[in-house]
Simulated scan of single mutants.
Amino acid sequence: MIGLSFIYSFGGIVFAAIALLSAHDRANRKRWGNAAFWGLLALSFLGGNALGDLGNGVLVLVLVALAGFGAVGRSHPATTDAPTRVASAAKFGNRLFVPALAIPVTALAGTLLFKHVDIGGLPLVDPKQTTLVSLALGVLIALALASVMLRPPKLAALQEGRRLLDAVGWAAVLPQMLAALGGVFALAGVGEVVGQGVSAIVPDGNLFAAVAAYTLGMALFTMVMGNAFAAFPVMTAAVALPLLVHGYGGNPAIIAAIGMLSGFCGTLCTPMAANFNIVPATLLELDDRNGVIKAQVATALPLLVINTLLIYGLAFR
């Protein structure tokens, strides 16, 4: 049965290849730092279970040290040159989007179809991971299509991947670390502590204040943790379940769905959501690294207010 192990192995192989290419890049004065960083990340993907909790913890500390002390630097690998790309764009036109569109199409098709495919009575793909497996399969199909269409140099895909990862740097792994932090917070009982604090502040019987505490808390925790999925278990255990669902009899589906959207409002306003706000600024080489955030705040704040009103108006009928 194909499950998460397939995705981890796929990712680990890619990171390992990038680490090897980094080690051989003599033009990059920080090549050994890059090779160590991506190599350790590959190790965590390929052998994380064997390392155990302590081994993985030490590995993460080494990654933090490499990034914190500036051992990771930007590279400029040789792939295709600008004239070649312009000629390719003129030749293929909108067909260049075919490989990119293959990813969502495969993810959707796999999610719908894999649950009906079994071999010897066992499912071909883990039913709980069909979307992730389909997404990884879509990436492989897209890579194959691009290679057949464009006929790039053999290592072009890996070199371009290395260029992008080195440009993003340590921020590429920030979502994983923040998601793990959310799990740690939930296991440590942070939600209960936050819930006690909210209960002490929100007046008894004031439904709107309780709803506002949840939506605002989702946005603020997301800004701190950089990930709405990490903030969700904390704020749901702290406010949504005890106050809004059990206390006021709210609809949990509506509260949870719109509560997550409230967290995304926080995503738009924080540099901690590096994959959304810092990475684009880096790749576009913007002069202001917070330019993306500044452009989004005027949208995020009104949306947060609207989300609060939606929960208040829809979840308690």
Rank of each mutant, 00 (worst) to 15 (best):
F69T: 09
R26E: 04
A89T: 09
G57E: 04
A71Y: 00
L46H: 08
V62M: 08
L61C: 09
K30G: 06
N94L: 15
N28A: 12
W32E: 04
H24T: 15
A42K: 03
L41A: 04
H76L: 14
R95N: 12
G52A: 15
A35W: 00
F45P: 02
G57D: 02
W32P: 01
A90N: 09
R26A: 14
G39P: 01
G48L: 01
L63P: 00
A78L: 14
L61M: 11
G55R: 01
V86R: 13
T79H: 06
N28G: 07
T79R: 05
D25C: 09
K30H: 10
G73M: 05
V72A: 01
L96V: 11
D25E: 13
L63H: 01
W32N: 08
G33W: 00
G47Q: 06
F92S: 06
N94F: 15
N56R: 14
S88W: 01
A82N: 12
F45E: 06
A71N: 04
P83I: 11
G55I: 01
G57W: 03
G47L: 05
N56T: 15
L46Q: 06
A87W: 06
L59V: 02
R74D: 11
A36L: 05
A67Q: 08
V60M: 11
P77E: 13
N34D: 03
V72T: 03
N28I: 00
R95P: 02
G68H: 09
L51C: 12
A90S: 11
V64Q: 05
G48P: 00
G33K: 03
V62Q: 10
G55M: 02
P83S: 12
N34H: 06
G39W: 00
L46G: 08
T84N: 10
G70V: 04
L46S: 09
L41V: 07
W38M: 02
G68M: 07
A65L: 12
D81C: 08
A89E: 05
P83C: 15
G55Y: 00
P77D: 14
W32V: 06
L41F: 03
V86Y: 06
K91Q: 11
L43H: 02
G39H: 03
G39S: 07
V86T: 13
G47V: 05
F97K: 09
T80N: 10
A27P: 00
A82V: 14
N34M: 02
L51Q: 05
D53T: 15
L41N: 00
A27S: 12
G39M: 02
S75C: 11
N94H: 13
W32G: 03
F45K: 06
D25P: 05
A42E: 02
V98E: 02
G70D: 04
G70E: 03
S44G: 08
L96I: 13
W32K: 06
G52T: 10
L46A: 10
G68P: 01
W38T: 00
L43K: 03
R95V: 08
D25V: 07
